[in-house]
């Protein structure tokens, strides 16, 4: 049995400790906001926070998360109102939307560690997340907007 804390809730899972965290979250716990994109840590669609770091859950064995805090897109905020979520909504960033769970989890680490990022910081932080619809320019704008919201205590 593997004990996991996901979005501050405890789950007991009867899974192979080598099962990637992604599939434990999606297929066993049933939270589907975290996406499968490549299975090889190439695209970032599967990003979740493990003790606050944006790990690629498709290559992270579930055993690594035992006793740690996992936060998925569903747990990024209680009311879909993290400054990044608000900014994403304000600028209508997503198109198909499939990659954006990962984009947001990635951006959340950036904003926490650098509340006032430049375009260059954004590019460096977000280069692990592929968006096939090509929403990159809006991602940049929205992160700047979220930084403003964060500063204003939203």
């Amino acid at each position: 049995m593997i004990t996991l804390s996901v979005n501050k809730k405890t789950y007991q899972l009867d899974v192979d400790p080598n099962m990637p965290l992604l599939w434990a979250i999606r297929d066993v716990i049933g939270l589907t906001g975290t996406k499968y994109g490549c299975g090889a840590a190439q695209c970032g669609a599967c990003m979740v926070h493990l003790n606050g770091e944006a790990v690629f859950s498709c290559v992270t064995p579930v055993s690594r998360a035992v006793g740690q805090q996992v936060i998925t897109i569903e747990g990024l905020s209680a009311g879909n109102d993290h400054p990044l979520q608000l900014a994403w909504q304000e600028l209508d960033v997503p198109q198909c939307g499939y990659c954006h769970s990962g984009q947001l989890m990635s951006a959340a680490v950036l904003l926490r560690e650098n509340p006032n990022p430049t375009d260059e910081d954004i590019d460096q932080a977000m280069a692990g997340n592929i968006c096939r619809c090509g929403t990159y320019s809006r991602i940049r704008k929205a992160i700047h907007h979220a930084a403003e919201l964060q500063k204003n205590g939203k």
């Binding site: 840590a41 970032g44 990003m47 770091e53 944006a54 790990v55 690629f56 290559v59 992270t60 064995p61 690594r64 989890m105 990635s106 951006a107 680490v109 950036l110 560690e113 650098n114 910081d121 460096q124 932080a125 977000m126 280069a127 692990g128 997340n129």
Partner: peptide, 12 residues
């Protein structure tokens, strides 16, 4: 850096 820390992909 940020979301691109080595250990985010490179496991133990």
């Amino acid at each position: 850096l940020y979301a691109m820390k080595c250990a985010n992909c490179h496991q133990a």
